[in-house]
Design a binder for these strands. Structure first.
Lengths: 334, 334
DNA sequence: CAAATAAAGTAAAACGTTTTACTAATTCAA
DNA sequence: TTGAATTAGTAAAACGTTTTACTTTATTTG
């Protein structure tokens, strides 16, 4: 059963294809199509259930009303929640989102960019990784709107929306110190992205400002793509062998692994051992005791990303880049 | 900066568009293009970075290499994990996934189907809701491959992949009874989908088979789209006012709310109060004490969905529908 | 009342591919 | 040595839209 085309509608209504197209696109008035014809055609479209072929439309107009969203991993709750928010907001403005996960692989990220490019998406929202600067620059050179979020790439000159990771990390450590902690560990990842580096810098600076000597042995950099069992082993080794009274986890999944370790070695969180996790997660509120977290302002990030993208899509002229840095919130739970 | 077209390549190589097309599509041999020409053209394509315009390709061939995935909510970990698996497997076979959330709204689901239809996706993977049977039937009538998963629609005649919810629910209740529980509650939702009904049926049947009288007062049906605070209030009311020694939560997000209630009213899970949650969640393993769950076989569901879809896409002939029911696993944690 | 303007609509090109049906030159078989 | 078969390649139609430039008829204006 072939689906209807604009031609079928034109024939049924006994008008030209052009006329139908004008009506569909709301240009009927402006193109002086009579009220009678408009009504007739609209009725036929309604009854037949005709929907314009978006592919043909895209080919002709050169835009797709699709925005490409490239993230690290859709099954990570930070990204899935933000994806949902972005999707929602974009949808209300008539845009669809295609999203896909890079799994922190440079090759996959490049492939995704190419795929989106050949699908002629109208704009790109990217949570980038190091190593794809050139590809992003090419998109920009071709005149595509690109917004980075969550992680910035210093070498690429485009708009960015993200949380203030440095300050959030600094404040977390400060709060440990205010509680009298002295031996503060950081469990982070080895992926080389700005947002992770800032969290590290905040940790270091806070120690320094409080006259605590930075100790390399208390910083654990977990390899990104490794099995969780290895991660757990490494964290366990840190917790068991080092004298630690507080720990900041730089991502929520590291914190989850860390909590599993604590459970396993039967170490209790309390007055002599404090924990803060970066990026909230349902498990943290529920945990006994509840885990303090740094909450990123998901809603605001999504809202700003969409706002920037739409502004850029509507103004044809070259847009002035913006960096929007939103404070993160330290939630202390007991 | 306009992007290259096949014509640009043809001109540069001094051959016809047809020839370039044959080479791109690996039909060069079969169409007897000489080795020399193939090499020349491939070199030019390589150097110029030309990528075929998928939109034009789709328009001409009528297929898009895109599979549409319609789910309830991408920010729910069950769906985001399954989406990730499906995406992964599809990607390896050269298909892209577009996904979008219905939020359990019939209107949004219908809109999404229309959107995918006008984008000419090659196949549909849908976790459906009641009320879109007709729309799905139309897709089938038009010859589109459609696979339902997680929830079945009895009125629609197409392939389905899902877990055995009835048995899983039955076994959960049986395990409560084996522990000597007598007053077993069920916290479920009011959405009218088969998978939820089966969980309810399993609950009822297990009670019955063990000679325990079914009590309507112990079954709480939470309205789907309501605020979490209301959900918490309702669950609290159940837990405080009824004599209960075990509870089965029919979804993971209900269990999360339920655990919050227990924490708030300071009721401990232990010998005199048992909990099982449907659909695993990171919070459950970490919880003190750990929460027993019914784990759906995500990997197997994703694998079967993709296998069915691909089989259907490759065989042009009408495909015989299959129902694949995979056992769920009851994980007892202490 | 002639010329200009407005109203109502249409023909055809273009977007970038794939594919069918064709041509021209060469090789092969009898 | 002829005509059939093979090799190497191409011209042009088609996919379903949008949009530009055009036509025809009716209305207004000076």
């Amino acid at each position: 059963m072939k689906s209807l085309s604009i031609k079928d509608i034109a024939v049924k209504a006994n008008v030209s294809i052009t006329t139908v197209s004008f009506i569909i696109n709301g240009k009927a008035k402006e193109k002086s199509i009579s009220e009678a014809v408009i009504e007739k055609v609209e009725k036929i479209i309604e009854e037949s259930g005709y929907k314009p072929n978006q592919i043909a439309r895209s080919l002709r107009t050169g835009n797709s009303n699709i925005i490409g969203l490239i993230i690290e991993d859709i099954s990570n709750s930070f990204f899935s929640r933000i994806a949902r928010l972005i999707e929602d907001k974009a949808y209300k403005r008539g845009y669809k989102i295609i999203y896909s996960s890079t799994e922190n692989s440079i090759d996959k990220a490049k492939e995704l960019i190419n795929m989106f490019k050949s699908r002629k998406v109208d704009a790109y929202i990217i949570s980038p990784i190091k190593g794809i600067e050139e590809d992003i620059q090419m998109l920009l050179d071709d005149g595509n709107p690109v917004i980075l979020f969550d992680r910035n790439l210093p070498d690429v000159n485009t708009s960015y929306v993200g949380a203030d990771h440095f300050t959030a990390s600094y404040q977390s450590i400060q709060s440990f110190i205010d509680q009298g902690k002295k031996n503060i560990a950081l469990v982070t990842t080895d992926i080389n992205v700005e947002q992770i580096i800032e969290r590290y810098d905040g940790y270091k600076k806070a120690l320094e400002d409080n006259g605590i000597k930075y100790d390399d042995k208390l910083v654990l950099k977990i390899h990104f793509n490794q099995e969780e069992s290895d991660t757990i082993a490494q964290i366990k080794e840190l917790f068991v062998n080092k004298k630690i009274d507080a720990v900041l986890f730089a991502t929520n999944y590291l914190a989850i692994s860390g909590l599993k370790v604590l459970k396993k070695i039967n170490k209790k969180i309390g007055d002599d051992f404090a924990v803060i996790a970066y990026d909230d997660h349902e498990a943290f509120e529920l945990h006994t005791p509840a885990i303090s977290t740094v909450q990123q302002p998901l809603e605001e990030i999504a809202e700003n990303v969409i706002k920037l993208i739409l502004k850029q899509l509507s103004t044809k002229t070259k847009f002035e880049n913006q960096e929007i840095i939103i404070p993160a919130k330290l939630i202390i739970r007991h």
